[in-house]
């Protein structure tokens, strides 16, 4: 499993929404392969019945009172949007 093929790297790049060239796919296949091979050492450890840690603090369900509060105003929110029209964010066509 440790070795990554060029095709696998291209697939992962697609999942991660990264355009990738043939040369990059080749380079990343080698580098990611070395890292995943290094990660194989975790298999030495028996983790049967070990609970996974997602978070170190004993926090569960942090809730606040269900009261509406004012967020940032629309004009402010749009300040960094490069393409917009009539107060809305504009993107290229989703379908042809």
């Amino acid at each position: 499993m440790a070795e990554l093929t060029k095709e696998e790297v291209k697939h992962v790049a697609h999942l991660a929404r990264l355009a990738i060239t043939e040369e990059e796919a080749e380079k990343f296949a080698l580098q990611l392969g070395a890292i995943t091979e290094f990660a194989e050492q975790l298999k030495e450890l028996d983790t049967t019945n070990v609970e996974p840690t997602t978070h170190v603090l004993p926090l569960v369900n942090v809730l606040r009172e269900d009261v509406a509060t004012k967020g940032l105003d629309r004009e402010t929110m749009m300040l960094n949007v490069k393409e917009q029209e009539a107060g809305q964010v504009k993107v290229p066509a989703i379908m042809d």
Partner: peptide, 22 residues
């Protein structure tokens, strides 16, 4: 890409979950 790979179907248990257990 390493993260996306670790989280993808087929590798999730061997990488991501294993790492959380360790």
């Amino acid at each position: 890409m390493l993260g996306t790979y670790s989280l993808s179907a087929g590798t999730y248990d061997a990488y991501y979950k294993k790492a959380q257990q360790v």
